[in-house]
Design a protein around this nucleic acid. Structure first.
Lengths: 252, 252
DNA sequence: ATTAATCTTGTACGTTGTACAGAGTAACGC
DNA sequence: GCGTTACTCTGTACAACGTACAAGATTAAT
């Protein structure tokens, strides 16, 4: 199971799980020792602390003090567990009420809220969401994001386009940041150490005359950020561009 | 080995591989039956046809007609193999000469070239490149992309920012598109079938009065694209915004 | 008291990257 | 010509993964 993906489980089971639909059949047998929420919260804590790669069914079970297969009593499979984690995280997002504020401020709030989510739960950016989680958290999030752009004269399709574009940018940044952190953790080398290990070797094969711009700009960017990639800077630069780009659509 | 990551191997070995540095020691022993290039090309063909998840060392070996461990004679490990695949793909990119054309046209060409790469090799968007491949292909690509923005009065740092922003957008789109395709393949359900399976179940739990915008805009967007997500539309909409956003920086 | 549903567990399978030991092969120093 | 040495190639092995399956334990409905 490489690369977690949302919406990958059985639709009926997934929706029942996300909306916590109670089983209407009479409940015989032993009382459940756990709840769906404790399983989801335990899994979230693991992913928060150690990343998606550390999120294994065995590990969740161990943290819950049960055997691995017991997890499957509460959740149909790992795919559905990740869906539930994601929807719960969406549901917990702080959503500022920016009614009446200028649209740039409202969109900045939406972007920042999603960025905060991805920093609180770094694994969120790593889940492939081509098939969205159709739970209450995702619905609340989508509703809120649309409302930030409502009433500006955009068509419904443009509204969806703009929200998709804005959040796509934020999650792209978050993914890059999470990748950088994961690379540093896995290799036990921070960016600086990695570049220090590569620079002398690269100098032997890289000819600055063949790639003059790359040599000049690359070293300028590296010097400016103290690293090859600065997540905060990329977010600030990008968000300004995103808003300017949407301005030509909104203030046409 | 979930989620392939570039730059994850030993720096010295990786750089020797990427730049095809010959071993200077005298070559005793049996003649190699393969070359690094055939290994990289075979691996690329597998990933092209069946995705990154199907790219296993055993599979590469089988396609080459050798045993699994023989692959390690040519490549230090899977991480370095992916680096070599990526750098080779960068090296093969068609790079249009747009000297003298308006900057929007030049940047559109850069975006399209990267999009073409990600459609020719859908696995490219799935590789985490926090640690870039430092091979000749990556250098040529970076040089070319910077040249498209050179001479417009931007600082070196802004040049890097803008290129990072533009390519980040393109790869974000490509990732979303690849995710959608992978989800359809893995679930043996296309988007339409997946929505058809979910819609009636969702209708039971989803209250349109609680999420009025989501209900209205979601169905409008779905109807307009014939699916929940239309990669071509998202790319076209987004690229227009990206260029408009950079315009305020360039034509200040 | 019997039945049936439910929770919980241990075992087992196939798949992954790759460490390791050993067998075969070809060029070098003599 | 002849070891010696470096190299290619192979089979076996390991730990970790998600989870199918069967069996045992527990409790409500009949």
């Amino acid at each position: 199971m490489a690369g977690e993906r949302s919406g990958a489980g059985d639709p009926a089971k997934t929706l029942r799980l996300l909306w916590r639909e109670p089983d209407d059949t009479p409940r015989r047998g032993p009382r459940p020792g756990l709840t769906v929420d404790t399983v989801v919260d335990t899994a979230t804590a693991i992913a928060d602390a150690e990343g998606l790669a550390a999120l294994t069914v065995r590990r969740v079970a161990a943290d819950l003090g049960v055997s691995a297969m017991t997890v499957y009593t509460y959740v149909p499979g790992k795919a559905e567990l990740v869906d539930a984690m994601l929807d719960a995280a969406y549901a917990r997002m702080r959503r500022a009420d920016t009614t009446g504020r200028p649209w740039r401020e409202r969109l900045t709030a939406v972007a920042d809220e999603n960025r905060t989510l991805c920093r609180t739960h770094p694994w969120v950016a790593g889940v492939h969401t081509a098939r969205p989680t159709l739970g209450p958290g995702a619905m609340a999030r989508y509703e809120h994001e649309l409302s930030a752009l409502d009433g500006l004269g955009l068509t419904d399709v443009q509204l969806d386009d703009a929200v998709t574009y804005l959040t796509g940018f934020v999650y792209g940044c978050a993914r890059a940041e999470a990748d950088a952190r994961a690379a540093a953790t896995d290799s036990a080398m921070n960016d600086e150490q990695w570049w220090a290990a590569n620079a002398p070797l690269l100098a032997k094969v890289f000819d600055a005359a063949t790639y003059p711009l790359a040599a000049r700009v690359g070293s300028a960017a590296g010097a400016a950020h103290g690293a090859a990639y600065d997540p905060d800077h990329a977010y600030a630069f990008g968000l300004a561009r995103v808003l300017d780009g949407l301005a030509t659509l909104i203030e046409r």
